[in-house]
């Protein structure tokens, strides 16, 4: 007999990832005491090798923050370059996605240092000051 499984999440992968982002934001904001007045900005780090299109992420964000504590906040995406270290000559630096080749000695034995980041970095919030403003 054939077993069937459904994934009820019809969307581009940016939506899936963005849902994780919004869940993370809601958890973080709710953990802040006292509760912030407003969430202003959200900073996300995105590695250059990830195939996530910032514009799609932005669009998904606007859709998914509706009716959450993040509604009205701004998403800022910081792209992290693809950096490698050569195992042969120890050269360290940035390369393009299309050529995993050491820019110094031409070796292909590279260790990836950065480029696969995908995390929530920080939140900018508005809190009440001592006078309750």
């Amino acid at each position: 007999m054939l077993r069937l499984y459904h994934m009820y999440r019809g969307c581009m992968h940016e939506f899936s990832i963005c849902q994780n982002l919004v869940d993370a934001i809601v958890n973080e904001v709710n953990a802040i005491q006292p509760l912030p007045k407003r969430l202003l900005k959200v900073h996300v780090a995105l590695g250059h090798l990830r195939q996530i299109i910032p514009e799609y992420l932005q669009f998904a964000y606007e859709v998914l923050i509706k009716d959450t504590v993040a509604e009205g906040s701004e998403l800022l995406v910081r792209t992290v370059p693809l950096e490698v270290k050569c195992r042969k000559c120890q050269w360290q630096g940035e390369i393009e996605r299309q050529a995993f080749i050491c820019k110094s000695c031409g070796s292909t034995e590279l260790e990836m240092l950065t480029g696969m980041e995908l995390y929530l970095e920080n939140l900018e919030i508005e809190v009440e000051d001592a006078e309750g403003n």
Partner: peptide, 12 residues
């Protein structure tokens, strides 16, 4: 008052 909160949350 504005405040910045450092977090590190892997989105995957």
């Amino acid at each position: 008052m504005l405040k910045e909160i450092k977090v590190y949350r892997d989105l995957m």
